[in-house]
Each structure stands twice: as C-alpha cells, then as structure tokens.
C-alpha cells in the first residue's frame, strides 16, 4: 500500500471549477454527488474530514467500509486485537487471508483496496483512561464500534469532555441499539445508562451470539450519521434511541433527553477528568469527585 493518491496537477486544472474534484473522483462519487444534500461541496467536506473508528469488529467493519467508499479523507482504526476465524462471520472488513493480522492493519488494507484516496491511521492500542484523550484528539467524528461497556463509557466521557460528536451502538443476538451524541447539544450515553451493569449481568456476543447482519445494519447506520454530520445534512439521531429487532424485522425508537444531573454532560458534571471514573467494573464516578459550578 503506497501513499494516498493525489490528483495530478493537470487533473486539478481541468476540474478546478467543480470543487477541485478530479475526473476520477467525479465518476467515483457520482451517485452521491448528484444528491443535492451532498453535491460537490459535501464531497469536498467529506474528503477533508477525519473519522475515528474505535473497534474494527462487527460495527466498525461496515462503518469503515462505507465511510471509505464515501470518500472520507482520513479514517482512523483503533483496535488492539488480531483477526480470528470466529470474527469473519460478521467482521466483513477482514478476510480469511488476514487471519492472525492486527485488525487495524487488516482494515487498512481493505480500505485502501476499496478507495486508495483515503488515508488510514492505524492505532493498535486498547483505549483506556490514560490514552483516550490523546487517541481521540483531532478527529471530527468518532464511531463507537467497541464491544464492551467500559470502552463505551470511556468513549462517551472522553468525547463529552472534548466536545467530539460520536455515534454509539451496541448489539446482541438479533438486537441493535444506536444513538448519536453531539456533546452539550443533546443527551449523552450516560443520560441513557448511568453506569455499566455488573460484569456477567449482560451476556456478550461471545456468550449469547449475534447475527452478523445486525452489527452490519447498525454499523451502516453509524456511518450514515457520520456522513450526515460531516456534510450538515438531515436530522441526526440525537435525543432518540433507535432500536432494531432483526428477528421480527422492526425498527422502533424512543426519546432520550439530556439529564441536567448526568455525571458526564449535566449542568454540574462530576466527570472533569477521566481519572475520576473507575472503568474497571461499573464505570462509576469515584466517591471523591465533586460537581463544579
């Protein structure tokens, strides 16, 4: 995989009248360029945008593929795992030939084969309270494709602290839930769930299973939200939780309001520093943390 392909000077000159897109780019993105909500201006925005995907698993795979296909300029893949045979039933960015590879590297190869114009940053680290702010810094939007409560709470708290919009999702069996968080302009994940349930109370996909298409649908929705946010189109899934029941093929939603007493995004937030939260078990704010204001 070489450096991201840049348009040649002559291509730029020919098409400088259309948002600086090359002829190839106009063809590649033609089906979305003709959408009035995207157009050349929206495409330009996508190409200048940076989206971080935490977890190159069932959710992160489709999200990364669609964001790459749409031409998001820089995609970050944060994942510390390696590709396992049991991943391939749903983690469609990886393939049999990438077994044993770091997931971030495998995802990068697939993205660059799909769209060499996308620059990919690989982060082969597990997100924790010590590195989260550094890893999340500088991205325009974050996709939470993680598979555990501590990471979901950590992404929420860090994104709220740093005002980074993100898409949350979780899946199990035939069920998916997703919501979009624009910090301080709507509710956050802790407004939905204050603390993590005790370990073992909620089964994991490893224990209870998951139909591969469920994270496929949810990850595609997360990518949709990222694109809409980046180009400023439509209504985001803010203040609403979308619930997908694949077995009965139903989508439902319920309202979610920002809670003034939320420890993360409330009027007097308790979490002003990630070290104030014990992400080990309940993702609970430590006793000595005090609200400000």
């Amino acid at each position: 995989m070489g450096e991201p392909k840049s348009p040649s000077r002559s291509e730029k000159a020919v098409k400088k009248d259309f948002f600086g897109l090359t002829q190839d780019q106009i063809v590649r993105y033609s089906r979305q360029l003709i959408l009035k909500e995207v157009g050349g201006r929206g495409q330009r925005k996508l190409m200048e945008s940076k989206v971080l995907i935490v977890g190159a698993g069932g959710l992160g795979s489709p999200a990364a593929l669609y964001l790459a296909a749409a031409g998001v300029g820089r995609i970050g893949i944060a994942d510390s795992d390696r590709v396992d045979l049991s991943n391939l039933q749903r983690q469609v960015i990886h393939s049999t030939k990438s077994l044993g590879m770091p997931k971030a590297e495998s995802a990068k190869e697939t993205i660059q084969a799909l769209n060499p114009e996308v620059e990919v940053t690989t982060i082969e680290e597990r997100l924790d309270s010590g590195n989260a702010l550094k890893i999340l810094k500088g991205w325009d939007f974050v996709i939470d494709g993680s598979d555990n409560f501590p990471t979901k709470f950590l992404i929420n708290d860090a994104c709220v602290l740093k005002d980074i919009p993100f898409s949350h999702a979780g899946v199990l069996r035939f069920i998916g839930m997703t919501t979009t968080v624009i910090p301080h302009r709507g509710p956050c994940y802790r407004c939905l769930i204050k603390e993590a349930p005790p370990p073992g109370a909620v089964p994991t996909c490893q224990e209870a299973g998951v139909l591969g298409t469920v994270p496929g649908v949810m990850g595609a929705i997360q990518a949709t939200e990222a694109i809409k946010f980046l180009i400023g189109a439509g209504n985001l899934l803010v203040g609403r939780v979308l619930y997908f029941d694949a077995l009965n093929l139903r989508f439902d939603q319920f309202e979610l309001k920002r809670n003034p007493r939320c420890p993360s995004c409330g009027d007097k937030p308790l979490i002003r520093d990630l070290s104030q939260v014990d992400y080990g078990t309940f993702c609970r704010v430590r006793q000595n943390a005090r609200g400000k204001g």
Binding site: G58, N148, L172, I193, K194, E255, L256, C262
Partner: peptide, 29 residues
Amino acid sequence: GKSVELHEGLNTKLKDGDVVAIFPPVSGG
C-alpha cells in the same frame, strides 16, 4: 426520555400521559 435512576428511581411519580421505555443495555460490537 429521562432515566429514572436520575429521578427518584422506583419511587419516581407518574402522571397521566407519561411514556415509559424499558430496555436492557447491550454492549456487543
């Protein structure tokens, strides 16, 4: 739309026309 944990928990009072949603958390990805 607001978690009852951040109200009065099980003692949270109800009024006519309220809408309650009951769901489990899911963390798979």
